[in-house]
Design a protein around this nucleic acid. Sequence first.
DNA 1: CTTTTTGCAAATGATTTGCATTAAC
DNA 2: GTTAATGCAAATCATTTGCAAAAAG
Lengths: 150, 150
Amino acid sequence: MALMQSRTAHSEQLRAASLRVTQPRLAVLDTVTENPHADTETVYRIVRESLPVVSRQAVYDVLAALTTAGLLRRIQPSGTVARYETRVGDNHHHVVCRSCGVIADVDCAVGEAPCLDASQAHGFSIDEAEVVYWGICPGCSAPQSSRPRS
Amino acid sequence: MALMQSRTAHSEQLRAASLRVTQPRLAVLDTVTENPHADTETVYRIVRESLPVVSRQAVYDVLAALTTAGLLRRIQPSGTVARYETRVGDNHHHVVCRSCGVIADVDCAVGEAPCLDASQAHGFSIDEAEVVYWGICPGCSAPQSSRPRS
DNA sequence: CTTTTTGCAAATGATTTGCATTAAC
DNA sequence: GTTAATGCAAATCATTTGCAAAAAG
């Protein structure tokens, strides 16, 4: 039922964005909703479990369309592949584990977006501050005994 | 003479890092010093002006070696190619123009690195905060008359 | 001379492009 | 019926890998 609910909500989201409601788009929205920070390949794999006809290119197209429409947010920490999440519009950042790559959300430490002291912006008009914290997650810093194999 | 000076200094830097002093490495250090935020292809092109034998793979190798040794810092804002700079060790960030891609340095607004309110770090032990401000640079926001063609 | 670097070629992997077909509206 | 989406195949582009040849110490 949670699925049915989200499906209805997602259809409305698509219509509100003047996007046609298609199975691939609903499946991608469902997948990213249930798997925040999933990368394209993961989305592709999961979508195909329920909708085996979808092509990888369709997933790329859908992710791009939904991101442009503001339904998804695309994040891509340095040297990593693109990932997507449904939390849009708020000013939150991310913490990434150098070891396993897991990502967690972090609310902005400063407050209002874009959280910059604009005093020395070199004349740029800044509209977004993208912050990535790098570190080691609790799982990876735990003693090896409790978490073998890297 | 500025060049000769930097060459000498760069040789010492390499030796201090236990790296062999080679023409490609000196040329890459010179190039990045004179062209902060240059990407790999730009470094390759400029290096070959003075040292035409250098291969693209050698440039990749050198940039990686120098970055690992701490002589260069690698930055890569979302969706862009890797860029390099010689300012290492300080906690500065970057502002990127969405229109022309130009990058400028910005000192950290908070102060000490990593500038994070660790209150909600989800148990991560964080060692670096990477901040990218996105906006429009003065040149691109100027009236078209003064800066035609994009 | 020994080890590190470089050159060269080929592979990889994410992402994009072009076009015909299909599905929404 | 129109127009927007998708499927499919091929292309692109930054970057990596493997190994032999060359150069640094």
